[in-house]
């Protein structure tokens, strides 16, 4: 069953088409990687799906709803959670509070100006923390976390909305080899237990081909090819843009 259907998506920046007519689908529970060289339009696509950018043309259907151009907060409520290329959390709050606020938002309880946040959604927050393996970090301030921990916290925050689709923008960027493994197996577990679909941008080809069920390759704002990892890996054009144009793969 198709969960996300993107058709004819276009976005211009100052007369240059960053995304020039992109079509793709994501099915429920599917893990899809979005790859391509720098400037291919991956993050721009993400931001249009997530509601951070308004498309200049095209449609985005999620679970039967047209979401192109809608507010990020409305899209989140429909069941799309996301992370950012540079890990973003609420720096002044503790790890637990980061999760509490996301959970409270999900349950529409943020308008409450009276209760103390101390006792709210604690059990659910700790449960999420356990899922990302950070129980011992609950009282730490987010600003003090190591980068790998931030990434995991960000993932937990995205999960607080019980999403059916996760958008992960370079989940392993900036992490060491072992941390990558930890994070990706975490994501695999989430996919299995929650039956959530994942669309992720990734430069590390080991991660892409090790975890994605399907790969979409963007180049210069268009879909170059999409298909099973094996098919994409052996495609000459993909080899060309990666190998021919330099060492993007390495980062």
């Amino acid at each position: 069953m198709t969960l996300l259907a993107v058709r004819g998506l276009v976005k211009y920046f100052g007369g240059v088409a960053a995304v020039a007519g992109v079509d793709f689908d994501v099915a429920a529970g599917e893990v899809v990687a979005l790859i391509g060289p720098n400037g291919a339009g991956k993050t721009t696509c993400f931001n249009m799906v997530g509601g951070q950018l308004v498309p200049d043309a095209g449609t985005i259907h999620f679970d039967g709803h047209e979401i192109a151009g809608r507010q990020a907060r409305a899209i989140w409520r429909l069941g799309i959670g996301r992370t950012f290329q540079i890990a973003t959390t609420f720096a002044s709050m503790t790890v637990l509070e980061n999760l509490q606020i996301a959970l409270l938002s999900h349950r529409r309880r943020l308008a409450d100006p009276v209760s103390s946040i101390k006792s709210l959604e604690i059990a659910a927050a700790r449960d999420l923390l356990a899922q990302v393996g950070m129980t011992d970090r609950a009282e730490r301030q987010a600003a003090e976390l190591a980068y790998g921990e931030l990434k995991r916290l960000e993932l937990a925050v995205a999960l607080a909305g019980e999403p059916r689709l996760l958008l992960l923008d370079e989940p392993t960027a900036g992490l060491g080899k072992s941390e990558r493994g930890v994070l990706m197996s975490l994501i695999d577990r989430v996919v299995q237990t929650r039956r959530v679909a994942v669309l992720f941008i990734e430069h590390d080809m080991d991660v892409v081909f090790g975890h994605a069920g399907r790969v979409i390759v963007l180049d210069r704002g268009r879909v170059l090819i999409e298909g099973a990892p094996d098919v994409v890996r052996n495609d000459e054009r993909v080899k060309d843009i990666y190998l021919g144009r330099g060492a993007v793969v390495a980062c």
Partner: peptide
């Protein structure tokens, strides 16, 4: 506070 720390993330979690 969330809006102060990151309005980007705040909007992305429904605030």
């Amino acid at each position: 506070r969330a809006a102060r720390d990151s309005s980007l993330l705040s909007e992305a979690i429904g605030i």
